[in-house]
């Protein structure tokens, strides 16, 4: 892609992001469900499982510091899935035909959707972090916060490509539960509730191989200890790998729509 084509694509991406933001600013309360769910889960899981931190081998002093990355990722994953649901609605209602009939390149259209998910993920992320700090979550430091932010935005983008893949496949909002359940399952089948050595049964095996475990540990590092490149790069590699995979599927799905 040449520099000129990139600069030509930016206004399109900006316009599509702007349209996506309309929903947040023009529909009263539209942002609330996306914020409420991860916040409730964060507070709820902390209150319920808080004493798990007393178990030998637990790496955090406080369970809220350990569990907050899960809620951050949950918020990002739901935001990404919601992008897929909105896309399915646009396909159902015919809006997406307007984009397909335009000369804008397909990857640029997808980029607009994905980037808007990344930005929107900052809303639940910010709320959960504020609530977390208010109830005693360890301050992750600016570097820890930066790593967490990058990972959360990346996860939202990845979840958006997953949602888009399903939206292009099913072309209906009825696929929403699949989009949401898929992301939730992916986030929770990691070291979400406890460190790997403390997980039991099937989850220990799945979490070992689930690439999102690496992402979660990268987000978590600042909240439970020091930030290191060794704990960051596996998460980045995992995230980029999944993102590339679903971007390929989403673009293929978009091409198939007009085939």
């Amino acid at each position: 892609m040449s520099a000129s084509s990139i600069s030509a694509s930016l206004p399109v991406i900006r316009s599509l992001v702007g349209r996506s933001m309309n929903e947040l600013f023009r529909v009263p309360g539209a942002a609330i469900p996306g914020v409420l769910a991860p916040t409730i889960f964060f507070l709820g899981l902390t209150a319920v499982f808080g004493n798990l931190a007393l178990l030998p081998g637990f790496e955090a002093d406080k369970y809220q510091s350990f569990i907050i990355p899960v809620s951050l990722m949950q918020g990002a994953a739901f935001t990404g899935a919601a992008t897929g649901v909105n896309l399915a609605r646009d396909i159902e209602q015919g809006w997406f035909d307007r984009l397909l009939a335009s000369p804008a390149p397909r990857p640029v259209i997808l980029a607009g959707l994905v980037y808007s998910a990344s930005l929107r993920a900052l809303i639940p992320g910010s709320v959960v972090i504020c609530v977390g700090l208010a109830i005693g979550v360890r301050w992750p430091g600016f570097l820890g916060l930066l790593v967490a932010t990058v990972m959360i935005m990346g996860l939202a983008a990845t979840a958006a490509t997953w949602g888009a893949t399903l939206a292009f496949k099913f072309k209906t909002q009825s696929a929403a539960p699949l989009m949401q359940a898929g992301t939730l399952l992916a986030v929770l089948t990691t070291t979400a509730y406890a460190p790997l050595p403390l997980l039991t049964g099937w989850l220990k095996v799945v979490a070992t191989y689930n690439p999102l475990t690496q992402v979660l540990e990268a987000v978590r590092q600042g909240f439970v200890g020091d930030v290191s490149w060794a704990d960051t790069w596996p998460g980045l590699v995992a995230l980029i790998g999944i993102w590339v995979f679903f971007t390929f599927l989403a673009l293929r799905g978009m091409r198939k729509m007009t085939a």
């Binding site: 030509a8 206004p11 399109v12 900006r14 316009s15 599509l16 702007g18 349209r19 307007r98 984009l99 335009s102 000369p103 804008a104």
Partner: peptide, 9 residues
């Protein structure tokens, strides 16, 4: 209209 014009470069 602005979005449509943007899509058409």
């Amino acid at each position: 209209l602005d979005l449509q014009a943007t899509l058409h470069g």
